[in-house]
Amino acid sequence: MMTNPVRRITQGQFSFLPELTDAEISLQVDYGLRRGYAWSIEYTDDPHPRNTYWEMFGMPMFDLKDAAGVLMELQNCRKTFPQHYIRLMAFDSTRGVESIAMSFIVNRPAVEPGFGLIRQEAAGRTMRYTVHGYASARPEGERGGNGKS
């Protein structure tokens, strides 16, 4: 179990708040749609802080204008990957931005094993650090879940 104050991975916009309900997620999706963003769903079982490319659950929903459609896709993703991390991401294609405008986690495994820090002592008291996911040593598809290996 992770020991930080919220006892879980704190990536994304809302990890310090109580889990968002689907109604609350829907309001955030609406906000993004009003601003012209395209929503996308991504999932992973390797939430290393520098694992940039989570798996895409389909393409970004460029032409989707209704939060209900995003929520439906999210339900599909949750059904398929109930023990994975799932995040919603909103893309802003405005010139000068052309990047992600919102990102928050909407599904987590029952147990979040977290990360260890591997230190390699180098010259002159220098340290080389590796952030190592406790679950990532296990094969793909067997990393999430209820703490069983």
Binding site: Q11, F115, M127, H132
Partner: peptide
Amino acid sequence: DAVNKASAATGE
């Protein structure tokens, strides 16, 4: 050391 330790503790 503090930065890396905090990164591991939070996943950020």
